[in-house]
């Protein structure tokens, strides 16, 4: 490790090694995306909890009015996309850690990826419908 240049049996090219993307050619991208979405979720989730508290007991009309407000619509869409992206990244890691059958693992990761997209798209569409159509 200390003197990698003396290792004559290395299989990866110098370019491949210096890029540091590892055997999956992905490197730290997954890790970094999880952290970036986590940081974004700090203010977004705090805003959401505060909003839920103020919305306690709200009826249909006042809920629609709240969602339709420009800032609330934007923050809701941001929250939904960031939340489901972060969720998908996290659950994928949990599945990869605990499910050791390759076939079941692949099927579960697929369900998680497609499922979070379905829920995220439905949520965003609901916000847009409420704020644009009513």
């Amino acid at each position: 490790m200390a003197d990698i240049s003396r290792n004559k049996r290395q299989l990866r090219s110098n370019l491949s090694r210096v890029r540091g993307l590892g055997s999956t050619r992905e490197g730290v991208h997954h890790w970094w995306a999880q952290r970036m979405s986590a940081v974004a979720l700090i203010p977004l989730s705090m805003w959401f909890v505060y909003s839920l508290i103020t919305l306690t007991g709200a009826d249909y009309q006042s809920f629609h009015a709240w969602v339709s407000e420009f800032g609330n619509s934007v923050f809701l869409v941001l929250l939904i996309i960031t939340l489901f992206h972060h969720a998908q990244l996290g659950v994928t890691v949990v599945i990869e850690d605990y499910v050791h059958s390759e076939a079941i693992k692949m099927a579960m990761v697929l369900v998680v990826k497609y499922g979070t997209m379905l829920f995220a798209a439905s949520s965003v569409f609901a916000v847009l419908k409420i704020s644009l159509v009513g």
Partner: peptide, 19 residues
């Protein structure tokens, strides 16, 4: 984290119901 995925799905249900 897993529990919060369920919470996110409930949020979807809530927004969809309102829509």
């Amino acid at each position: 984290g897993i529990v919060l995925v369920l919470a996110a799905m409930l949020l979807t249900y809530w927004l969809a119901a309102a829509a």
